[in-house]
Design a protein around this nucleic acid. Structure first.
Length: 154
DNA sequence: GACGATAGCCCTT
DNA sequence: AAGGGCTATCGTC
């Protein structure tokens, strides 16, 4: 089955984003401006992302497909989706919520997150410091700043 | 077995 | 204070 691809531009992140989907969301990638990059918005999530970057949306409704992962990783990703807009928890706190003490394993699992932003792994930070981010720490920082700015006006 | 997007402790400057 | 080494922890590959 052939998947669909939408492309949007994020002003706060200063980069393009590709979202891949069929019946559910498959992946979200950060991409620099390509030769023939043009925006294409068909899926709801593309419009949701637009509003998110404007600070007007705090909750994504779109369904995500994480069925190809193991049970631990799925638990981590599901738990991550419960973190509220503008809030953060630590790797160890997230581990505890799913009945584990493997803070590092949580980091590993989050590193595999196929759909960042919508599964808000940027809200999981280290006890001391910001922790890592597959898309680059700068993107994580911008996302957290964006949410901190807009958390007030719900 | 080794390796992590961790965390805590115990040193040294 | 701030940074480095050591170790506990545990899911993945």
């Amino acid at each position: 089955m052939e998947n669909n691809l939408d492309i949007i531009y994020s002003k706060p992140l200063k980069c393009y984003i590709e979202i891949e989907y069929n019946t559910k969301l498959i992946s979200l990638r950060f991409v620099g401006p390509g030769k023939h990059t043009r925006e294409k918005k068909a899926h709801d999530a593309a419009f949701e992302l637009d509003r998110y970057f404007e600070g007007e949306l705090i909750d994504f409704a779109s369904d995500v497909d994480i069925s190809n992962f193991g049970p631990f990783t799925q638990k981590v990703l599901i738990e991550t989706r419960k973190i509220k807009y503008g809030e953060t928890i630590t790797y160890s706190e997230l581990a505890e919520k799913i009945g584990s003490r493997a803070a590092r394993a949580v980091g590993n699992a989050l590193g595999k997150n196929p759909i960042p932003i919508i599964i808000p792994c940027h809200r999981v930070v280290a006890k001391k410091g910001i922790g890592g981010y597959s898309g680059g720490i700068d993107i994580k920082t911008r996302l957290l700043e964006l949410e901190k700015r807009n958390a007030n006006n719900l």
